[in-house]
Amino acid sequence: MTSTTDLTTLGVIGAGRIGRAIAVLGRAAGLEVRVAASRPPEQIRAEVEAAAPGARAVSVEEAARADIVVLAIPMGRYRQLPVDALQGALVVDAMNYWWELDGARPDLDDPTTSTSEILQAHLAGSRVVKALGHVSGYALEELARPAGDPDRLGMAIAGDDADDVAAVGVLIDALGFEPVPAGPLAEGVRFEPGTELFGADAGAEEAREMLARFWNSQRGRVVARARGGDQK
């Protein structure tokens, strides 16, 4: 199982608000943080260094070689991610589909699958785990807390490989949130936009309760019908 000492480098693809917030948390956790974007490194260097002192602006290829790589770009741009560079990488899907930003995308609004499963199909040689996308930007910027703090927020994690989920749990804990395993990657649908947990910034126990209630929610019933029956 991955330990804190095994995790030394964090790649972040995406230099917007979420990517920068994750870079700040990674530096606070003592990690070597590499931030990449669609723009060349020299064009984002100043904003990366200002937001997260000590983080480095790098190429996507260099960010992809980190121990864990967080994807923090709009979900609608997932096909632009470099399949070859991310081959074999442990990838954290922190992306969300917003029709207002991404446009109407029936392929991303399919209730028979989750957006993380769509990403996994695109990055077939990568190991995708969903996390870091359901809390608010404010929570990432202001609400990280050490282990044992009663105000610590829960962070749901969904993935198909137990070791990968454990490794991402180590990262989540180091960043200041309580890991809340939610099952296989398909269960990421329970904390996508439109669900109770999304944006709730809840503690770990409340997050578990929200996840458990998903199948009784309107969105949960839609997903269950699309998937052919009771998903509880």
Rank of each mutant, 00 (worst) to 15 (best):
M1Y: 06
S3F: 00
T8C: 00
T9V: 02
L10Q: 02
V12A: 01
V12W: 01
V12R: 03
I13K: 06
A15V: 02
R17N: 12
I18N: 12
A21K: 07
A23T: 10
L25R: 14
L25F: 03
G26D: 13
R27V: 12
E32M: 09
R34L: 10
A36F: 01
A36G: 08
S38H: 14
R39I: 10
P41C: 05
E42D: 15
R45E: 15
R45Y: 05
E49K: 14
E61M: 06
E62I: 00
A63F: 07
A64K: 00
D67F: 00
V70C: 11
L71V: 01
I73G: 02
I73K: 05
M75I: 14
Y78D: 00
R79A: 04
L81R: 00
A85V: 06
V91S: 01
V92T: 00
D93C: 04
M95Q: 13
N96G: 05
G103P: 13
R105Q: 11
L108H: 01
D110L: 04
T113G: 05
T113D: 04
S114C: 08
E117N: 08
I118M: 05
I118V: 15
I118P: 02
Q120R: 13
Q120I: 10
A124V: 08
G125K: 00
S126R: 00
V128C: 05
S136G: 11
G137D: 13
E142A: 13
A144C: 04
R145K: 14
A147G: 05
P150C: 08
P150H: 12
R152V: 06
R152C: 08
R152T: 09
L153G: 05
G154H: 15
A156T: 02
I157H: 07
D161I: 13
A162V: 11
D163M: 01
D163H: 05
V165S: 09
A166P: 03
A166Y: 06
A167C: 04
A167P: 02
V168K: 09
D173Y: 09
E178W: 06
P181A: 01
A182G: 07
A182K: 13
P184M: 08
A186D: 05
F191S: 09
F191L: 09
E192N: 10
E192P: 07
T195A: 10
E196K: 04
L197C: 10
F198H: 15
G199T: 06
A200T: 15
A202F: 13
G203C: 03
R213A: 02
F214V: 05
W215E: 04
N216G: 13
S217Y: 10
R219L: 11
R221S: 04
V222C: 02
V223K: 11
V223C: 08
A224M: 07
A224N: 06
A226E: 02
R227N: 02
R227S: 04
G229N: 09
Q231S: 08
